[in-house]
């Protein structure tokens, strides 16, 4: 596996959201507008990349019995540091994102990559794996955020693109798009689309109904 592979494969082939189904709850919460989705994407990508690197760096000295506590402590520290930077230099954005940035700690994607990849691989591939997964997550977030903001408000990044009915135009904003369920619908459609294009991603059913023919000896 080349280094490039770690970076490229999580984008579509092994996307953390559409294939691994990790990090869903933050994907719902921060995608009402494109700008919050972008900030969350950047913050999560940085956290994933740094935590992957740091945990991989000390992987030989993490006692297996307390590895999860150590991973969580490292991830939480990185998140707090990033949150502090945001409060100092991106105050408006941090007010809108504050609780979600804190929730990066519990984002299963971060711990999932630390446990599945960084604990067993050298530093550079681990950091690249974090970066790749962060970009894969960002890609989905940006698509969902763009669709939700445009269909929900008729604009992007706060700039109105089409005139809404309220302003005398023709566009009727779809209020549902600003609510959390719409992110589920969009994510579901995207999972479906990706699996139609890449049938190898379709999971085999875990159980199959027993038919009368199976019972016949």
């Amino acid at each position: 596996m080349s280094l490039k592979h770690h970076l490229i494969s999580p984008l579509i082939g092994n996307n953390p959201i559409t294939l691994q189904i990790l990090g869903i709850c933050s994907a719902l919460a921060v995608t009402t507008t494109l700008s919050t989705a972008i900030t969350m994407s950047v913050a999560l990508t940085v956290v994933l990349c740094l935590s992957g690197g740091v945990i991989s760096l000390m992987r030989h000295h993490i006692p297996p019995s307390i590895r999860l506590i150590i991973q969580i402590t490292i991830v939480a520290s990185i998140v707090i540091v990033i949150d502090q930077f945001m409060q100092a230099f991106m105050f408006e954005m941090s007010k809108r994102l504050s609780i979600f940035v804190g929730l990066i700690v519990t984002n299963c994607l971060v711990l999932g990559r630390a446990e599945a990849f960084a604990m067993r691989n050298p530093v550079v591939p681990s950091a690249l794996d974090g970066l790749g997964n962060g970009l894969g997550y960002s890609l989905i977030l940006l698509i969902v955020g763009t669709l939700r903001e445009f269909l929900g408000t008729g604009g992007l990044l706060g700039v109105p693109l089409v005139k809404t009915v309220a302003e005398g135009g023709w566009f009727e904003p779809l209020g549902l798009m600003q609510l959390a369920p719409s992110a589920f619908f969009i994510l579901g459609l995207m999972v479906w689309l990706v699996r139609v294009l890449r049938p190898e991603q379709v999971e085999r059913p875990e159980f199959r109904l027993e038919t009368a023919e199976d019972r016949r000896p």
């Binding site: 939480a76 520290s77 707090i80 502090q84 930077f85």
Partner: peptide
């Protein structure tokens, strides 16, 4: 970790 958080 606590040193890093406190210093920032």
């Amino acid at each position: 970790s606590s040193a890093a958080v406190s210093i920032t």
